[in-house]
Amino acid sequence: MTVSQPVILVTGSDLAQEALDLLTNFEIIYAGRQPSEDDLCLLCEKHDPVAIIVRYGKITARIMDAAPHLRVISKHGSGIDVIDQKAAAERHISVQSAPGANAAAVAEHAWTMILACAKSVLPLDRRMRQGHWDKSTHKSVELEGRTLGLIGLGAIGARVARIGNAFGMNVIAYDPFAKTFPDGCHSSSLDALLQNADVISLHCPLTEDTRKMINSDTLALCKKGAILVNTARGGLIEDDDLLRSLDNGTISWAALDSFTIEPLTAPHVWQYVDNVILSPHIGGVSDTSFVKMGTAAASNVLKVLAEPLKNEGVLP
């Protein structure tokens, strides 16, 4: 008689082999690249997973209720705002994340976007392809001596800060929860940061306190011509307000790697704004971080499943 293995549901189409090597005692079910709530509910009802590893999509109370033996929801990365944490707590389901696993990848992507904005990489490329030679008229933004303002100073923000310091920038950060600041990075209030920063880079989680924190009021404080980069969460920005700031020159360039609704629907207004650089929320996905996030997510699953059941004090 064959004994079936417990199931782990992955809301994606793959995991790093190194992660799979940790989970050989489980059956892995993939939900695909863009699973809907209905898709995930059907898979939970069919397979009754003990764990969900979250790559894409949101995990709602309805999905949790479709998996009566679910014990852990493990994020393939650090952002757990896509998981209904209140619903998980009410159902005694552990929520785990992998902070820092993709920090290097996101920090590198943030700097790629900062430099692309400051050095006009995309418009210069377009002009060259159209036959123009703008050497006598173009002037890029030199970052040395300019101010880099970081909103959020976790593992990613701290890396971005250190790189800014290496560029010779004045680095300031707003993070009411930060206990330490990297060398060369100074604490700032949010208002002071917005008023003084030539480059603003977002690295904070999406919470009720930070939702739409970049809006008409905060953008009005910004230094004219500032660059805004978001490799965190799309919900941090009020899109219509940013669009107006880009149009009137308050913000000279924006670079966006995350969006309020993902995947970005087409046609979308950002596709037609020349001073916006777009990428499809891939800042945290590199060859190395894919392995780090996968193994961290798998290890978190194993850690929780090795613990005795706490639900109502009943042991398995």
Rank of each mutant, 00 (worst) to 15 (best):
K223Y: 04
I214H: 11
S201I: 10
A158H: 01
I227H: 01
D198K: 07
M169K: 02
C185G: 08
N196P: 00
L221C: 02
S216N: 12
G225L: 05
R211C: 15
D209K: 14
R159A: 05
G157I: 11
T231W: 01
T180L: 05
S201M: 12
H186V: 13
L228I: 12
G145N: 06
K223L: 10
L148H: 02
P176H: 11
G234S: 08
A166C: 09
L228R: 12
P205L: 00
D175K: 01
I151H: 00
R159V: 00
L228G: 04
G154W: 00
G149R: 08
T147G: 04
F177T: 12
S216C: 09
M213V: 11
M213T: 12
C185N: 06
S189G: 14
D209A: 15
V160E: 09
V171M: 05
G164F: 04
F181I: 02
I156S: 00
R211K: 15
V160K: 02
D175I: 02
L202R: 10
R211G: 01
D217K: 14
I156K: 00
G164N: 01
V199R: 09
T231R: 02
R146H: 07
K212V: 07
S189V: 05
L194N: 05
T147D: 08
A173M: 08
I214W: 10
N230Q: 12
A192S: 15
D217R: 14
I214T: 09
I214N: 07
F181C: 06
S201R: 07
D191E: 15
L190D: 01
G184W: 13
F167H: 03
V229D: 03
S189W: 03
A166Y: 00
N215K: 09
T147C: 14
L221N: 01
I214G: 05
T207F: 06
M213K: 03
G145S: 09
L228H: 09
A173Y: 08
L153S: 03
M169E: 10
I163Q: 12
D217A: 15
A226P: 04
A192N: 15
F177C: 08
I200C: 05
I227P: 03
G184Y: 13
F167R: 03
K179P: 00
P182D: 06
R162F: 00
N196K: 15
T207C: 06
M213E: 08
D175N: 09
I156A: 00
L148I: 03
H203G: 03
Y174F: 15
G168C: 11
G225Q: 06
G152D: 04
G149H: 06
N215E: 10
V171D: 07
S201H: 11
I200Q: 03
Y174C: 10
T210N: 09
N170K: 15
I163N: 02
R162C: 04
A161P: 02
C185S: 08
L202N: 03
I227Y: 02
D209Q: 14
A161L: 06
K212A: 15
G164S: 04
V160N: 02
G157H: 08
T231A: 11
L206T: 10
I163R: 14
L228T: 07
D209S: 13
